[in-house]
Design a protein around this nucleic acid. Sequence first.
RNA 1: GCGAGCGUGGCGGAACGGCAGACGCGCCGGACUUAGGAUCCGGAGCCAUAAGGCGUGGGGGUUCGAGUCCCCCCGCUCGCACCA
Length: 840
Amino acid sequence: MGYDFHAVEAKWQRVWKERGVFEVEADPGKRKFYCLEMFPYPSGALHMGHVRNYSMGDMLARFLRKNGLNVLYPMGFDAFGMPAENAAIKYKTKPHDWTWNNIEYMTSQLKSLGCGYDWRRRVESCNPIYYRWNQWLFLQMHKKGLVYRKQAPVNWCETCGTVLANEQVVSGACWRCETPVVKKNLEQWFIKITDYAQELLDNIDTELTGWPDRVRIMQRNWIGRSDGAKLSFALPELDYTIDAFTTRFDTVFGITFIALAPEHELVGRMIERSPQADDMRDFVAKCAAQSAIERSDASAEKLGFKTQYSGVHPVTGAPVPIWIANYVLMDYGTGAIMGVPAHDQRDFDFARKYGIEIIPVIRPEGEADFRAESMKAAFEEDGITCNSGQFDGLPTQKAIQAMIDWGEEKGYCKREVNFRLRDWLISRQRYWGTPIPFVHCPKCGVVPVPEDQLPVLLPEDVTVQDVGRSPLLDMPEWLNTACPQCGGPAKREAETMDTFFCSSWYFDRYCSAHKAKPSDALPFDKADTDYWMPVDQYIGGIEHACLHLIYARFFTMFLADIGLLKVREPFTNLLTQGMVIKDGAKMSKSLGNVVDPTEMIQKYGADTVRLFILFASPPQNDLDWSEQGVEGAHRFLWRVWRFVEDNADALRNAPSGGVPMSEMSGDDAAFSAARTLKRKIHSTIVSVTRDIEKEKQFNTAIARLMELANALTAFAKGMRSDKLELRLLREGAEVLLNCLSPFCPHIAEELWEMIGGKELLTTFPWPVPEEDALVSESVVIVVQVNGKVRARLNMKAGLSESELREAVLSDPQVQERLAGKKIVKTIAVPDKLVNVVVEA
RNA sequence: GCGAGCGUGGCGGAACGGCAGACGCGCCGGACUUAGGAUCCGGAGCCAUAAGGCGUGGGGGUUCGAGUCCCCCCGCUCGCACCA
């Protein structure tokens, strides 16, 4: 008959669907498990990275289901975004049509992989029934004061024709197309994620213990809390006060200049009044022309412009010259810094270039005579305070605290905390996204669309001409509307939301997506999220460490604050899978090294593809795609097939239920072989269970199954085929197929049926190891002399330390080895090893 | 520059501080074959005919015993990067 994987896979996919085995409901009487994978962007077709991600998730979901948990395992599509617009231009289609075609095609691919999703719950973020709630949630955030508009220099990608959030700028370039990002001064929509910075940070230590350390550290650094103080320099001439933030208030006596970011509002004022206006304007323009990459390159030359103004040092009252400098960032702290060249390398470089005074106020410990003239670089380490009046002699850490205390008391400064995390720039100048539910009224200003008028529908019958301009701007019938407040003519907000908004709560939606109705009052059913949330296991790529995984955490906290969720953290355990590599590089179209999952499924079957991808490397590591490896996996499945088929009659006729250890206590070789197999069967259950559940080492779990298959095949060849042996063989086959089922569900189901399984293996309970089958009767004891292996002795298991020592030392082989040597000591590890230490 | 991680056969990778290299790929040999790029059986870390010796990037240390723990160095990968 042979292994016809196409027929087998189609058959069981149909059966599972007919029996609805993956459809679940919240049931407070059952222990739940929420297994989630990052939903894909419908780019056209699945790539191997998806297949890897979903093979892991499906395997886990199936494993947990067999272990009696009520498993929620859903799938959907993150369907808004740029590529749909680009594709629409390229293929002369509509983003809507292109996206929906892809969704249907990719759904069929996922089904052919055998993933057991509850498809009734599929969400598509471009579906009005979904994005309506994006708008609603945006309005809730607005009500809570978390949404604001601000004119600010923002990151702009020329290629994508839109602004980007901070998290979407990678090394100064667009995260999607790698175009260098430039700053543009625009009025934009922001969400105050920084209100949650502290909780986002605190929970990393207390709540995210099931996350990889790597991701936790990345998030901690991204949020980046700095403790320090704010101090102010008066500028009476312009009736202005310049605020600056510092983490090193202990260096105040070393301030020799103030530097403003070119975008600082004070610079604008100076340009209005100063005789230097033209030069100043030129300098600001020069800085503005720098790309984000140049601007953020720490090694780039620092540019400065000395203004005619000076601020008043808050402590000494001395005048401090004000400069404009390109290395000062407008969006961190206050956009102005106190310059302390002696103790900050950037300030040092700047001061040296422009001849600004350098005053050391900290000296290295033990170096009494520390002068500016001899400094080759800023002294940034801790040391002893000097040139600072009453604080001289204090070590740095003490000085910081003492001086801030004093500064606060005297009114020179105020303690302040700054975060590196910036507010989330949420608007995009793109068409294919969730319309921001606001209206611009000439009379009333920016007015929210009332909730009962949601959704603000995105027109679907739209042709995109080029990326430079959103088609919404050219649709007066959509753009023109009545102001919800005064009823007068008004215009809709034509900008759309960052797609990361959609992906920040889709996992809440899954919990009740199958019951969603247009008349719903809330984005999800609270009873359902109360039961299913949080996600117990989340699986996805590490590239989202500081993107989606921060936004989704913020959303969850917000949803908890408005009473919609009970949990404040969405993902209990996180598994970040590595990339799929081919020929030394990530699979990509431009490198031409992509392997099409559908072709592989055609050629080898879904079970083979799943098996290879889980076996080739541990989940977190990168995985080298190797078609020879795929063939190896395929061969293994063939071997299992042949083993079962060759013994099918015997297995089917042997009674199920296994052979207890007690029935195999005879002394002859056949009994001994049977006991060995029995132990192999049950130790396999133990290690496979542990590898999947605890270690998440799917590759070694599969290796154990291969060993079991090898052992069973060998046993079948050597046996006399008496009743006991056949019963044991059946026990082994059942365990093998049962444990293989989460990995390769179709073939396992088919062979299970072949040996007479009546129930579906997919819902059949995971095997339980028999304790007495795990105990070995004899063990190989390694005998070492001075740490080197000299002999291996077969001994009875369970000997105590002293029994073992005695037995080994009295062994003739060992005695021969030790002849004439003086034994210093003997270490005995029961059931493992004896190390005899002798004099050299 | 700062932070994190990783270095094990020809390759992917296994190893509670206790037999290094499980499992698989590739390779070599054999069987069956008109054939073998199918299947089955066997072999194999390296050096050595063998006894034996040497082996987890390099050097040191702790230990009866180190791939595993500690220190120094080298190399690679990733993240952040003028964050005051």
